[in-house]
Design a protein around this nucleic acid. Structure first.
Ligand code: MN
Ligand code: MN
Ligand code: ZN
Ligand code: ZN
Lengths: 140, 140
DNA sequence: TATATTTTGCAACACAGTTGCATGTAAATA
DNA sequence: TATTTACATGCAACTGTGTTGCAAAATATA
């Protein structure tokens, strides 16, 4: 169990429970984003489906996780950087999904390009998802 | 009923049925993208849920409609331009969703900006959805 | 019009996600 | 540490969305 797990939960005024520890640990020990099903399989078996849903919901509300929109309309979750907090996400980055292995990554190192909108329109937020093949899969 | 309805169906080797006419007409007489629920309400009442699903599926396969990914994971459909055909979509544009009225538009007039990916990665396809407020809603 | 081919509606199902409520567990307090 | 209080969990039941098989109906074709 990653040592940060306990701290992150306390910092967010969450009581430390087995399911929260287990699920948060999954994200701290994996670089890739996880779908609900991944979590239910890896952490699950031991926890009720509803508990997994509620835990993920809580983590998103607290700014511990953020969701990633995908073209196939399945929700994935990834760790937020430290500057997200309750009700205020600042996840100014876009995402990459490998079509071969399904790996989903936050690309935090690149700047979101500016995107045009029609005259008189106001753009608040730009969601970008890049589909492609990751380095590991290209070598195969 | 829009005069193009019949032609579009025949051009795509689809038999002309009441549900296909009605649903296709909805898209030709609306500029905005429609969700399944919109269609079921506007065209529905008269058609079975399953028929609406199958009709939309067929239209997407034929290249008459394309789907739009949204952050809230609900599928929306919009008319393709003429250069899409069976199994080959060429919808190189991004989308705008108004957070006030829900209007969803294809922004065909702008170029998709180039987006960086990590070294050794291959980018195949970039999905962009801009959330904001449309001109009509800003004036209110 | 008669026939072959598609499409439709219905029922039944699968799956994701939500809600209410009683019980169990963690945190706060004494 | 023992007690109290607040919160998290599991279960059952439910809703919404999308799919499938099949018989009946509608369409296209000759
Ligand atoms: Mn991210
Ligand atoms: Mn479009
Ligand atoms: Zn990969
Ligand atoms: Zn609007």
């Amino acid at each position: 169990m990653d040592t940060r797990v306990h701290d992150i939960l306390r910092r967010n005024q969450l009581s430390v429970t087995a399911s929260r520890e287990k699920i948060l640990n999954l994200f701290l020990t994996n670089t890739r984003a996880l779908a609900h099903a991944d979590i239910e399989h890896k952490a699950g078996e031991r926890f009720d489906r509803v508990t997994v849903y509620r835990t993920l919901q809580t983590f998103v509300e607290k700014g511990i996780l953020h969701t990633i929109p995908t073209a196939d309309n399945s929700v994935r979750y990834a760790l937020c950087k430290n500057d997200c907090f309750e009700g205020h996400h600042h996840d100014n980055h876009y995402h990459f999904i490998c079509s071969a292995c399904g790996k989903t990554e936050c690309l935090e190192e690149f700047v979101i390009p500016s995107v045009k909108v029609p005259k008189e329109y106001l753009a608040n937020n730009v969601e970008i998802v890049v589909n492609g093949v990751c380095a590991a899969c290209r070598k195969k």
